[in-house]
């Protein structure tokens, strides 16, 4: 199952809404429409998550620790992209 406490411990600034039973977490980022969704799949005992609207394939992991690491990577990539978008200097992705 998803352990919201582990996510909360890793990302103390995220506000987490969980469903009952806890198979899905929706994490809103500030007051924007951007949502980080995490799902638990009973069938193969794994998690997957994606940033809402992000058309990259879902990221599957098997443990909560892996999940936290993957979310960190995803955030890093998203923030790097934001920095690039904010830059007045044109650069190729």
């Amino acid at each position: 199952m998803i352990d919201p406490g582990k996510i909360k411990a890793a990302f103390p600034n995220l506000s987490i809404e969980e469903t009952e039973p806890c198979t899905e977490l929706a994490i809103k980022i500030g007051t924007t429409d951007l949502v980080l969704c995490i799902y638990y799949k009973d069938s193969n005992d794994s998690f997957y998550f994606f940033l809402c609207g992000n058309d990259r394939p879902y990221v599957y992991v098997n443990t909560m620790d892996e999940l936290v690491e993957e979310i960190e990577d995803e955030f890093d990539e998203y923030i790097d992209e934001l920095k690039r978008l904010l830059s007045g200097k044109q650069n190729v992705r």
Binding site: P12, G30, L34, F75, D76, I79
Partner: peptide
Amino acid sequence: SLLDYANLVVQAASKSS
């Protein structure tokens, strides 16, 4: 505004409060 948004994400993804 974009900077505000970026900072929102940076803060959300931060491991520190």
